[in-house]
């Protein structure tokens, strides 16, 4: 149903070239992995797709049944989790969920959110401030925050960072869910994360 198309994307970061003339298309049910050395522009590419960074050149478009989605409303169709994307530390996990539900116009259902908390192993900490969380716990919460509004396109920047094997199971779960109902792009160099993907793009070639 939804698809993503990236055409001739070029990005310079101050005077260094990150990537040039990058083009690809992502169809429903596909999972793409982006790999490359540190500083090769993996995160920047995800941020460009999300609309957080302007490309130096080229286009990113999303389509719904071949009808283009305007850039202003693209945010409803994208979910993103990245190390640089923080949650509110002064709020509890549930309050964070509540805020992101409300701001996206989803009816906030406490029971439903508690279920999700249980599923990511945070049910005991659900009412504690995120400031006191370990980095792995924060990462779990970030992951579910990204899929809260059921986005057709999921962007994951190093989804497994700080996660233990139980945490990796969550990532796997999320990605297989996404494969069934949407698309996903993963930026990572971890073998276990890249293995989830159907296709791989190497930015360091």
């Amino acid at each position: 149903m939804y698809s993503l198309s990236v055409t001739n994307l070029t990005k310079y970061y101050s005077s260094t070239l990150l990537f040039k003339d990058l083009s690809f298309r992502l169809n429903p049910g596909e999972v793409l992995a982006i790999i490359g050395w540190n500083g090769s522009g993996k995160s920047t590419l995800l941020r460009i797709i999300a609309g957080l960074v302007r490309p130096s050149c080229g286009r990113v478009e999303m389509f719904c049944k071949n009808a283009p989605i305007p850039k202003e409303s693209r945010r409803q169709f994208i979910g993103m989790a990245a190390p640089a994307l923080s949650l509110y530390e002064e709020l509890t996990a549930l309050e964070n969920m509540e805020f992101f539900c409300r701001v996206r116009g989803i009816a906030y259902d406490r029971r439903n959110c508690l279920n999700i908390m249980e599923r990511i192993g945070l049910s005991e900490q659900a009412e504690k401030m995120c400031r006191n969380y370990s980095s792995g716990m924060k990462q779990r919460l970030k992951l579910v925050q990204a899929i809260l509004h059921n986005p057709p396109l999921l962007l994951l920047d190093e989804p497994g960072c700080n996660l233990d094997s139980k945490g990796m199971k969550i990532v796997e779960d999320i990605i297989s869910d996404q494969r069934q109902f949407g698309m996903a792009v993963i930026a990572s160099n971890e073998r276990r994360e890249v293995d989830y993907a159907d296709r791989v793009i190497n930015l360091s070639k």
């Binding site: 409803q76 116009g105 989803i106 009816a107 899929i147 509004h149 059921n150 779960d173 999320i174």
Partner: peptide
């Protein structure tokens, strides 16, 4: 499935 809701907001 994790979530099935989609939102609409003003």
């Amino acid at each position: 499935r994790w979530t099935t809701q989609t939102g609409s907001s003003t």
